[in-house]
Design a protein around this nucleic acid. Structure first.
Lengths: 169, 169
DNA sequence: GAAATTGGGCAGCCATGTTGACGTATCTTG
DNA sequence: CAAGATACGTCAACATGGCTGCCCAATTTC
């Protein structure tokens, strides 16, 4: 299951890249990298009076139009009360609309309005610029490694849900 | 500067790995991967009545013992009022202590107490387990790529500060 | 040595998460 | 068809972790 370990350090049980400095480096790069990626969209959000919670919601609805409230709750990992407030604000601003499910009329299916799509696209553009610059600078092979490590951080159960986003995108 | 691009798609200006699905994949893996990495320490923090903001503070003080409040402010990218509250709580709980700077007596130099070091070590252990499992599963080459991409997300100016953490670690 | 700069701190507000309890419409099942 | 389960919404109260505004003390500068 685990990768083969080079054994250049006979006195150590772990290869060099599993030692504390390399772990700390990963933690720090994740923290700073992710922070800077998101920092770019705050301005665009603030201009609409929205926050990051609203962005995450817009993002996933854009990704899976017609998803149910319960699907979104599982993806975001928050309570329905928290999501309810965010969804309410987005609906009031005509960025999100709900339609009653046809097979099960208790369900509310979530969609972006044209305005919502436009805002999501604008915010995505900021993320795209930063991440694609990082991808291009690092090269294709590095991007594959980047994905590999991050996938390993996600529990198997949830990895399915994340992979499902790709298929529908 | 940029890596060589394979040109399997002559009709596209960008290589495949710079297209929207690959960008969205990176965004999603970062979001879910980082979320799960951090989720593991919440329990340990809650048992002490602390939150993630406290952890970040403990982490960086552990990383650079004796750093100034202003150094920490730059690293965290928050306001000194926000940090002040966190530092106050950590000091009250005897996890952090400050010493007056010798060259400039306005400065407060930050250190972890033995209890603070023990807590930071415990929290780090949880992060280490998860990240080293992901590293091992992905392999050394993937880890290098992971670092490469994340570095590209950090503005050059700040990259220096992040790199400095490694030297002192 | 007065003024400006710098390091730090306190008070109070806002965004966004939490729990708990409850209401209502709809679907499912005995 | 009655009973229970499910999907969603909502009210109230509260915690965390950001923020701005204002203030004090120490140092540097002119």
């Amino acid at each position: 299951m685990a990768a083969q370990f080079p054994s250049e350090t006979p006195r150590a049980a772990s290869p060099l890249f599993l030692r504390e400095p390399e772990i700390r480096r990963g933690i720090e790069l994740l923290y700073f990298g992710y922070s800077h990626l998101l920092r770019g969209i705050d301005e665009g959000l603030a201009s609409q009076g929205l926050g990051r919670a609203h962005h995450r919601t817009l993002y996933f609805i854009a990704r899976q139009p017609g998803l149910k409230v319960s699907d979104l709750l599982r993806l975001l990992g928050i309570t329905k009360q928290s999501l309810g407030r965010v969804l309410g604000e987005l609906t009031t601003r005509d960025l999100v609309e709900t339609r009653t499910g046809e097979v099960d009329r208790r369900q509310r299916l979530l969609f972006l309005t044209p305005e919502g799509k436009a805002l999501e696209a604008e915010l995505f553009e900021s993320l795209r610029e930063k991440l694609s610059a990082a991808y291009a600078q690092a090269g294709q092979g590095s991007v594959a490694g980047f994905w590999q490590v991050l996938e390993g951080l996600i529990p198997a159960e949830e990895r399915k849900r994340v992979a499902a986003l790709q298929r529908e995108g």
